[in-house]
Design a protein around this nucleic acid. Sequence first.
DNA 1: GATGAATGAGGCTTCATTCAT
DNA 2: AATGAATGAAGCCTCATTCAT
Lengths: 203, 203, 203, 203
Amino acid sequence: MTKRARRKAERPTEILDAAFEEFVKTGYSATRLQDVAKRAGVTKGTIYFYFETKERVFQEMMRHKSQELLPDLERIAAKSVGSHAQRLRALVTFFLGRIAEDRTGRETLRLLIAEGSRFPDMVDQYHDEFMQPVIDHFKRVITAGVTAGEFRAASATSFTEVAVSPAMLLSIWLMLFGSRRALDIKSFTEASMDLIMKGIEER
Amino acid sequence: MTKRARRKAERPTEILDAAFEEFVKTGYSATRLQDVAKRAGVTKGTIYFYFETKERVFQEMMRHKSQELLPDLERIAAKSVGSHAQRLRALVTFFLGRIAEDRTGRETLRLLIAEGSRFPDMVDQYHDEFMQPVIDHFKRVITAGVTAGEFRAASATSFTEVAVSPAMLLSIWLMLFGSRRALDIKSFTEASMDLIMKGIEER
Amino acid sequence: MTKRARRKAERPTEILDAAFEEFVKTGYSATRLQDVAKRAGVTKGTIYFYFETKERVFQEMMRHKSQELLPDLERIAAKSVGSHAQRLRALVTFFLGRIAEDRTGRETLRLLIAEGSRFPDMVDQYHDEFMQPVIDHFKRVITAGVTAGEFRAASATSFTEVAVSPAMLLSIWLMLFGSRRALDIKSFTEASMDLIMKGIEER
Amino acid sequence: MTKRARRKAERPTEILDAAFEEFVKTGYSATRLQDVAKRAGVTKGTIYFYFETKERVFQEMMRHKSQELLPDLERIAAKSVGSHAQRLRALVTFFLGRIAEDRTGRETLRLLIAEGSRFPDMVDQYHDEFMQPVIDHFKRVITAGVTAGEFRAASATSFTEVAVSPAMLLSIWLMLFGSRRALDIKSFTEASMDLIMKGIEER
DNA sequence: GATGAATGAGGCTTCATTCAT
DNA sequence: AATGAATGAAGCCTCATTCAT
C-alpha cells in the first residue's frame, strides 16, 4: 500500500478525530466545519467528499467515539475471578478508574446530553449499546452474588441502576467542574466501593 | 400601578421564561432570539431593550432558573425530625422526588453541561451555590448520625458526595432518555434508599 | 417669563447644539438621536416633538450653525479704514484669524463636505449665503484698489477666488490634521499675507 | 494562468473599485456592502472572502486609490527644465490641471475629510504620504529659486504651504459645488499662477 | 410637553454547502 | 481526490420612529 493510499484510507478517521475535538470545544452548532478541516489538515471540500453534511459528520464521529469502553468492560468481566464480592469490586474499580481517565467517554456523554434533542436516534443508540449493557454487566454479577448468598436479596440488588450511580456522578463532576473544583477521585472511589459493598452484602 | 408599569416590571421575567423554553429546545447557539421574542409575545427589539446580548439573556435566564430548589431543601432540612436515619430518609425522598418532578432543574443542568465551556463562571456559580450546598446538607445529617453512633464512621460517610450519586443518575437519565427508555422512579428511589441506608448504618 | 417657559423656548437650540457635537463626532449616518438627546438632557421623544426626522434635525442644525461668520465679516468690512491695501490686510487678518479660532465654522464645512451629496440644497445655500458673499467682500476691496491704482489690473485681481485660497487650505488643514500635524498658524498667515499683497500690488 | 486564477487575482481590485463608487455616493456608514457587491458583480459573501470587515474594505480602498497622483508629480518634477520660474509654472499647471481632471483624487479627499475622525491613522498616512510630499515638491523648487535669486527670500517663499492653497480651494470647490456652481477653471488657474509668480518673484 | 417602552426594517457578518478546476 | 472561491440564507444587533401614558 503506498503512502498516499494509506493516507487516503485514514482520512475519514482523521476528520472524525478532528471533529471530536472541535465539537467538544464549541458544541455542535457553534463548530465550524472550516475549523474541523484545518485541524484535520485538509480543506472544507475534502470533508464533503467523505461526509454528506455537518450532521453526518457529527453522527459518524459519535458512533466512532462511542465504541471504546464496552469491549474493555467485557474483557474485565470475562477474566474476573474470585468471590462475587471480589468480582464486583473489580468491576467498580475498573469502571470508575476508566471514567476518571477517559476524557473521550466523558466528552461523548457531554455531547450526547447537549445535542440529544437534535439527535434522538443517537440517544436511543447510546442507551441500547452502552448504558443498558453496562447496567447489565453489574446486574449479572450482583444477581449471581445474590443467588450465591453473598448479597442481600433486596431492592438495592434487584435495581442495579443504583450501583452505577457513582460512575455517573463522577462523569458529570469531571466534565463540569474538571480542575476548577477538583474532586478527590481516590477518596470518591473508596467511598463508592464502601457504600456499594456494605449496602448490598448479606450479613 | 399603571398597566404600562406593570408590563414593564413583568417583561424581563416573561422574556427569560420564554428564553428558557427555547434554549432548552435547541441549545444556546441554535436558538434564535426571534423565536424567544415570539414566544414571549414581544419583538426582537424589546429583548434588546432589556438585555444587552443573547449571551446576557442566557446568563440571566440561568440565574433566574437556578434558584428554586435550594430554599425548599433548606425548609425540609430545617423541619425534619426523628432519628438521623429518619432525617436522612426524608432528605433522600425529598431530593429524588423533586428531581423526578422538577423538569426545570434538570433542563438547567442540561444547559449547564452543554454550554458550560462557554460560560465557565456560570459553572462555578452552579457549583458554589447549588452543588456544594446540596452535598453539605447531606454531610450535615450524615455526620451528625455518625457522631450519634447511628451511622458507621467510614469513607462512605466521610465523603458524602457519593450519597448524592443516585440523584445525579436520576437527573441524567430523565433528561437523556425521558420517556423513550422509562425508568421506574419508585423502584429506583427505593433501591437508592436501601443502598444508602444499609451502606452507612452501624451494625 | 417663567423658568419653565424659558427652558421650553431654549429647548430647540439646546437640541441643535447637542446635535452639532454628535454629528461632528460621528457623521450624519452613524450619529444616534439617542445620543443627541442624552447630550441635550432630554429624551428621544422630545426631539421628535420639535423636529420631524433625523434629517430635519441635521438641516436645522446646519442652518443654525452657519449664520455666525458673515455678520462679523460685514462689520469688519464696514468699519475698515485706510488705504485699500490696509483694508485688504485687515480683511485677510480677520478672516484667517477667525478660521483658526472658529472650530464651529470648520466643522460645519466638514459636515457640508461629508454629507453634501445627501443634502444638495444645503450645499447651494452654503455657496450662496456664505461662500459667494465672502468672495464678494474680497472682490469689493480688491476691485476698489485696482481702480485706485494700488493693485494691478490682472487675472489675480479679477478672479478673487484665489485670494480666498489660503483660508480654505487653513480650514481643511485644521479640520483634517488638527493637532496631529500642527501648522504654524502665525507663519502661515504671514506667508499668505505676503503672497497676496506682493502678488497684487502695483509696482 | 487559468480563468479562475485570473479572476481571483482581479477580484479584490474589482471590489475596491466598486467600493470606491459606493462610498463616494453615500459615505461610509450609509453604504451597504450589499450594493458594493452588486456593483462588483459578486455577492456579499465574496467580499468577506477577501476582506475581514466593512472597515477593512474602506481602508484598503483608500490605500488603493491614494497612490496615483504622487508618481506623476515626481515625473513632472524630474523632467522639468528651464528657469526656476518656468519649473514652478510647470508644477502649478500640472497640479491644478490634475486636480481639475482627477475626480478620484478629489473624492478620496472628500472621504478623508468625512470619515477622518473614524480613521485617524488614515489621515496621518494621507498627510505623510501625500500632503507633505506635495508641499515638499513645491518647497524644493521655490527654495532653489530663492537661492538662485529668482524669488524673494520672504515668508511667502519660506512657508510653501501657501503656494498649495489654490489647489486646495479648487479641490474643495469642485467636490462641493461641482457643476451646480461652476468655476472657470482656466481663469482660476491663470489667476493662481499670476498671484503666485508675482507674489514671490524678485524685483 | 415629555417620556421611554416597543416596534421592525435593515445592515453586518457567519458559515454550511456547492462546484469548477 | 482535493481544493478553495463563491454563494446566499440566516442570525445578531442597531436605531429611527411611534405612541400610550
